[in-house]
């Protein structure tokens, strides 16, 4: 038996909105410690990794490790039927080919039940190496979203450069070019507005903006985002989910010809 109740059902809605343009099917890997999802886009350029600890759910019950394959289209349709303040319970019995969703309003007056057929999804699990990044930049998530959106008006690629002076985003195309510099903030009122730059080594990488703009669909999940960069390595974009999980996107760089 698997059962997990998320008090803030809106978090599940936001997670699905964040990944539905990148992947079509996902496997929920459920174990006693929580739920994880690893999915790659069809072009093998980016990967989504969701990790949700069991402590984010009340109750959480997972008698035996179970993999639940879901089509995101069906999941998206069902989850959209929940109100933002509903709790969402996911239930699956061993040996059945259905997954159940129960939505409950905060006062308990309205409950809704939906069922989705499980799918057998053949997905390759990649081993993501532990990486010591050259630079780790934490910034407001809406700021990152804005930068990606603005830069994609100029070109298809963005160059991200971290130096002791800060982080620079630049793009160029037929129309012209643009550069945006961010420096570590000194004094801010709210911690979530802070720009924090950890620099071990200067790093300079190019990425396709199309994917970054997909990733920023996760902005409603968290006020902050972390960019982890290493020379000639995939970028890791992390959105924390409450204090019990995270959504990470890995993006392979563009390599000079």
């Amino acid at each position: 038996m698997f059962e997990a109740r998320l008090i803030q059902g809106s978090v599940l809605k936001k997670m699905i909105d964040a990944i539905k343009d990148i992947v079509t099917d996902i496997n929920l890997d459920c174990s006693s410690t929580g739920i994880s999802v690893q999915a790659m886009d069809s072009g093998h350029v980016c990967l989504v990794l969701i990790e949700l600890g069991s402590d984010g759910f009340e109750p959480y019950r997972c008698d035996r490790n179970i993999t639940l394959g879901l089509g995101l289209k069906a999941l998206s349709v069902v989850v959209r039927c929940a109100n933002n303040d509903d709790s969402i319970t996911i239930k699956a019995q061993e040996g059945t080919d259905n997954i159940n969703f129960v939505f409950e309003s905060p006062n308990g007056e309205k409950t809704s039940q939906f069922e989705i057929k499980l799918m057998d999804i053949d997905s390759e699990h990649l081993g993501i190496p532990d990486t010591e990044y050259d630079s780790v930049v934490k910034m407001p998530s809406h700021e990152f979203q804005r930068i990606c959106r603005d830069m994609s008006q100029l070109g298809d690629s963005i160059v991200v450069a971290c130096t002791k002076d800060g982080i620079q985003f630049s793009a160029s195309g037929d129309m012209g070019s643009g550069k945006i510099n961010l420096r570590q903030s000194s004094l801010v009122d709210k911690e979530e507005d802070q720009i924090n730059i950890e620099l071990n080594d200067p790093v300079h990488l190019t990425f396709a903006l199309r994917y970054l703009n997909y990733f920023t669909k996760a902005t409603p999940l968290s006020p902050t985002v972390t960019l982890s960069l290493k020379a000639e390595s995939p970028l890791c974009v992390t959105y924390p989910i409450g204090d019990f999980g995270s959504m990470k996107f890995f993006l392979a760089p563009k390599i000079d010809d």
Binding site: V45, E124, P129, P234, L251
Partner: peptide, 13 residues
Amino acid sequence: KGTQASLMSFFGK
């Protein structure tokens, strides 16, 4: 500009 790399060349199975 630049060639898009595949993630498979960085992450092992």
